[in-house]
Each structure stands twice: as structure tokens, then as C-alpha cells.
């Protein structure tokens, strides 16, 4: 063997798995056909409409109302999920109790359950004659056919995002950090605020973003409980469907594109915040 051919063969043998070219090709093609192409088609469709008309459709009172409701309810659901999700992840990681594994498995139910089933179950529970509704309605709290119902359905379907992103980070968090903080005189709440929370914050941010994005697009679970009253409890994705059924393709495309833009902007912000929160990892990390 000549010395010139040696580096080439050495380089080739570095890859443990063969077929990099093939697998990468398949992956990219699939990604293009399934994800990228529809998004591009949507953007092109939106561009066809023209900025003035786009603006007119997007700011029509019914569209605005739907977008506002969707964003507000998604924000409410996300705030709830952020707090409850961290709590749940904490309980699952830090305590050992009978039924912990069962509880851990239960967390995935909102993902596994068809969203329509979730919506039906939630509306049955919160209806005036349902288990929760029977308690809440006499207190003057109505959930079904209000923004609360929309938020509840959104929170239900997106809660696993926060739990499942925070949980592994919490599991990997070395208990020595907390021990060190204790010997330095920090009390439990201070330890959580200054040691634990900064460590899980980047993961929490990912969970929050995913949870919010999912809530923005949640459809199946929401329409059962929302009542879908125009200007009141009509979510944006439902309005897009209604426009489509009216053969108003432009109207549908504008709403879809607006949701897409909101989601993308959010993703970008989340990534920037995450990078800032992780800057301590240094060049080596």
C-alpha cells in the first residue's frame, strides 16, 4: 500500500455505519416532500394574493377575533403547562413512590389519545351536567363555550411537551449542585431559584415553545368544547377550515400563513433565548 492511499482509507473507515450518502439522500428527499414543499406551496399561495389584499383578509374583524382568541388561549394554556409541567417533572424525577412508573406512563396519554376523543371527554366533563361542570357552573364559572374551555383543551393536548423536555434534564442534574448550595447556606427555595431553575430553563423554554406551537394549531380537541361561536370562541384553524369549505382558498391560506409566521417567529425567539441561556457552556461545550 502506498503512503498516499493510506489517509483516504483511514478516513473512510472512520464512519461506523455505512451508507451515509444513501440515508442522507432519503432523509432530505422525505423532508423536502413532506415538510418543505407544503410550506413553500403555502407561502407561494400567500404571495399570489398580494400584500394589500393579504393585509385586508388578515385584519378582517372575524379573522382578528379568531387569531386573538387562539393566541390568548394558547398563552393561557402554556403558562399553566409551564408551571404544572415543571412540578410534574419534579415529582416524577425526585420522589420515589408506588405508582411512579404508572404516572410516568400516564403523561403520554394526551399524545396517544386521538384529539377528538380528548375533546369529547373534556366537553362532557365540563358541561353543566358533567362532573366538573356540576361543581363549577353553580359557582358562576362556565368553561364550555368560553375561552377557558379552549385553553383547557389546548393545555390538555400539549402538557407532555413541557414534562418530557424538562424531565431528562432534571434527571441528569447532579445532586451535588444542590448539596453544594446547601452547605453554602442556601435554603430550598433559593436553591431552586438560583441553582435548579437556571439548569432546567433552556429545556423548559423548548417545552414552552413546543407547547405553545401545538396549542396554536390544536383543532380536534378544541372544537368540541369551544362552541365555535364566530367572534367569540372560534379558533383560527377552524376559521381556515370554514374558509376552505366556502371555497375561499385565499382566506384559508392567509390564516394558515399567519399562524405559520407566528410559530416561526416564536421558534426563532426561543432559539435566541436558549442560546443566551446556554452561553455559559463556553467554547468547549
Amino acid at each position: 500500500m502506498t503512503s498516499a492511499s493510506l489517509p483516504a482509507s483511514a478516513k473512510r473507515s472512520k464512519r461506523v455505519l455505512p451508507g451515509f450518502g444513501l440515508t442522507m439522500g432519503v432523509t432530505l428527499t422525505y423532508l423536502g416532500v413532506i415538510v418543505l414543499l407544503p410550506v413553500i406551496a403555502l407561502v407561494l399561495k400567500g404571495a399570489e394574493i398580494g400584500p394589500a389584499r393579504f393585509w385586508a383578509i388578515a385584519t378582517a374583524p372575524r379573522t382578528l377575533a379568531a387569531l386573538q382568541l387562539t393566541l390568548t388561549a394558547a398563552a393561557m394554556a402554556t403558562v399553566f403547562n409551564a408551571i404544572y409541567g415543571v412540578l410534574m417533572a419534579w415529582v416524577l424525577v425526585r420522589y420515589n413512590f408506588p405508582g411512579r412508573r404508572l404516572l410516568d406512563a400516564l403523561v403520554d396519554i394526551p399524545f396517544a389519545l386521538p384529539t377528538a376523543v380528548a375533546g369529547l371527554a373534556l366537553s362532557a366533563l365540563f358541561a353543566a351536567n358533567g362532573w366538573y361542570g356540576a361543581i363549577l357552573e353553580p359557582m358562576g364559572i362556565q368553561v364550555v363555550f368560553t375561552i377557558w374551555g379552549v385553553a383547557a383543551a389546548m393545555a390538555f393536548t400539549s402538557i407532555p411537551f413541557v414534562i418530557r423536555t424538562v424531565q431528562p434534564v432534571l434527571e441528569d442534574l447532579d445532586p451535588q449542585y444542590e448539596e453544594a448550595a446547601r452547605t453554602l447556606g442556601a435554603h430550598p427555595f433559593t436553591i431552586f431559584r438560583r441553582v435548579v431553575f437556571p439548569a432546567i430553563f433552556p429545556a423548559l423554554l423548548v417545552g414552552i415553545t413546543l407547547s405553545f406551537a401545538r396549542s396554536l394549531g390544536e383543532f380536534g380537541a378544541v372544537i368540541f368544547i369551544a362552541g365555535n361561536l364566530p367572534f367569540k370562541t372560534e379558533i383560527a384553524s377552524l376559521l381556515a377550515v370554514i374558509r376552505l369549505e366556502e371555497y375561499d382558498y385565499n382566506g384559508a391560506a392567509v390564516i394558515a400563513l399567519t399562524l405559520l409566521i407566528i410559530a416561526l417567529v416564536l421558534l426563532a425567539i426561543s432559539n435566541i433565548l436558549q442560546a443566551r441561556a446556554l452561553r455559559y457552556r463556553g467554547k468547549t461545550g
Binding site: 453544594a180 452547605t183 435554603h187
Partner: peptide, 22 residues
């Protein structure tokens, strides 16, 4: 006394420095 009240300086084998703090 609790650990917080004892004022011991504990140094860990793997340092346990808080990674997000300078």
C-alpha cells in the same frame, strides 16, 4: 443543625461549581 446552619465549606471531587455562574 441543618446543613445550611453549620457553615461548612465543602469541596467536591468533581467541583460542583454552578455551571451557569461566572
Amino acid at each position: 443543625k441543618k446543613a445550611q446552619e453549620r457553615r461548612t465549606g465543602f469541596v467536591f471531587q468533581h467541583y460542583a461549581l454552578f455551571p451557569h455562574m461566572k
